[in-house]
Design a protein around this nucleic acid. Structure first.
Length: 154
DNA sequence: GCCAACGTTGGC
DNA sequence: GCCAACGTTGGC
């Protein structure tokens, strides 16, 4: 089982939306490096849910991958902001996963606090200028983060 | 609102 | 294939 970190803006889709829907396709990622990480995700993997563009930004919850390697349906939808005319169902360009809500923290682990505990090499999200919305988290780092956040369902 | 740090696009 | 211009992300 691997750990990841996925970013979302709470104004667009936050941890409470995730809790309400329980299960959802992580759609709308249109960056190749992030896509490659999404493709590498396996069922049972866990991902830290990160609120970006928030006050404060930080880790707010945990989700679990319940289905891997899904073609992002929004790429075929002309009405969607994420429509990609160059993508076809026969040869989809954007793959993602389905995730399930696991846990929301009562208190966010703010970016400032993350910086106190992790080096940029340890946790990519604390590095300035990291815009990637999907990042791998090493096992040992994940364990430290689980402890720091006080996660119960690790 | 600013702007650094990217990623993408398109002319050549 | 290069790279300038442009667009986006996201912290501050």
């Amino acid at each position: 089982m691997a750990y990841w970190l996925i970013k979302s803006e709470p104004d667009v889709y936050g941890i409470e939306d995730m809790r309400r829907e329980n299960v959802g396709i992580w759609d709308g990622v249109r960056n190749y490096q992030a896509r490659n990480y999404l493709k590498a995700m396996k069922k049972g993997d866990r991902a830290f849910f990160y609120h970006s563009n928030a006050k404060p930004p930080g880790v707010i919850g945990l989700v679990e991958v319940v289905e891997e390697n899904i073609a992002d349906p929004t790429q075929f939808d002309p009405e969607s902001d994420y429509f990609d005319p160059k993508s076809t169902p026969e040869n989809p360009r954007w793959h993602t996963v389905k995730v399930r809500f696991v846990e929301a923290l009562p208190e966010i682990v703010a970016l400032e606090r993350l910086r106190e505990h992790f080096q940029p090499e340890e946790l990519g999200v604390v590095k300035r200028g990291t815009r990637l919305s999907v990042l791998p988290v090493e096992e040992a780092i994940a364990q430290r983060l689980l402890k720091l956040g006080g996660f119960e369902h690790s």
